[in-house]
């Protein structure tokens, strides 16, 4: 073995830091889209490294659906404090009050789709020309074709058939007025890479990722955290379960898994043995086979 050799995690880290620095230098006004999930936490961690010993030279943007886990918000505020970063919050409730979106009704109502409007508004209002996010190509088949630098037209839409070819590590961030880019520094990471990196770097995570007791509702194959935003159906009941979350999104759509994994090592063992993809219990992806692609075209993350 050569002495000058990087492990796969070190090579992914080097690549991501390079991409983050390119985004910073090629755009006037970038930001990090911060969801509170592990992927955007890793992107933020990498951004802090990319500019060390300076602070992250652009803000974190959080789209608040109003249906958040309280643990996510606490973690967010603590992280921003620790990094000395700037935080900008876009509220879906504001978009609803302004009449820009209509709140979904019914048993499966969620604000997942509504946040597209709030996100695009936040980008426009703050004149962001690049939004860095934690999407990974292994997550979902529409994302397998994403670029590191992903062009969005002035309506924030993605055109998968007309993407710029990305050659070597040379990124083309040129754009017309009003257009913007989504930048995905961890495109090449898998769910396992993320967990291994969190372990290696000892990155703190929201407690939601670890096994805990919670009031839940079983719906179809999913286990949802019970909250005031969940409308119980007939025959459904609230029960206390030992669970954790594999991904973290909105309260109304993020499915939990029954688990006793309470340390990072145990989580990694569990992920390694998992028989279902991590988005397999995301209600938002299950609406139709192409639902992620459709939301992405509209400007979803």
């Amino acid at each position: 073995m050569s002495k000058y050799r990087l492990t796969h995690l070190e090579e992914l880290e080097a690549e991501s830091i390079y991409v983050i620095r390119e985004a910073f230098t090629q755009f006037q006004n970038p930001c990090i889209l911060f969801s509170g999930g592990k992927d955007s936490i890793v992107v933020t961690h990498l951004a802090a490294k990319a500019f060390y010993p300076a602070k992250i030279p652009f803000p974190l943007v959080h789209i608040d659906t109003g249906h958040n886990f309280i643990e996510t918000l606490e973690y967010r505020d603590e992280l921003v404090d620790r990094l000395g970063a700037q935080l900008i919050v876009g509220y879906v409730q504001d978009s609803i009050n302004q009449g820009k979106v209509t709140e979904e009704k019914g048993l499966n109502a969620s604000r997942n789709r509504a946040q597209i409007v709030t996100l695009l508004d936040a980008i426009e209002l703050n004149k962001f020309d690049a939004a860095l996010g934690g999407a990974r190509r292994d997550e979902e088949k529409a994302r397998a074709k994403e670029r590191f630098f992903s062009h969005r037209d002035e309506f924030g839409q993605w055109d998968p058939k007309n993407q710029r070819p990305e050659l070597w590590n040379i990124f083309n961030g040129r754009k017309q007025q009003g257009e913007h880019f989504r930048v995905f520094p961890i495109s090449n990471w898998t769910e396992m890479d993320i967990w291994q990196y969190i372990l290696k770097e000892n990155i703190p995570l929201p407690s939601l990722y670890f096994s805990h007791k919670r009031d839940c509702v079983k719906r179809g194959d999913s286990i949802l955290a019970f909250s005031e935003f969940i409308n119980l159906r007939e025959n459904e009941k609230v029960e206390s379960m030992q669970i954790r979350f594999r991904t973290i999104g909105d309260l109304t759509i993020t499915g939990a898994i029954e688990s006793d994994a309470s340390t990072l090592e145990q989580i990694i063992m569990e992920v390694a043995a998992a028989r279902q993809t991590e988005r397999g219990n995301r209600a938002d992806d299950q609406r139709s086979e192409a639902s992620m692609e459709e939301r992405k075209r509209e400007g979803y993350f």
């Binding site: 050799r5 990087l6 492990t7 796969h8 995690l9 090579e11 992914l12 898998t190 396992m192 291994q196 290696k200 090592e265 990694i268 063992m269 992920v271 390694a272 043995a273 998992a274 028989r275």
Partner: peptide, 12 residues
Amino acid sequence: METIANLTGDLL
């Protein structure tokens, strides 16, 4: 599925 052991492997 990927294994936990893969911390020293490289990338192809």
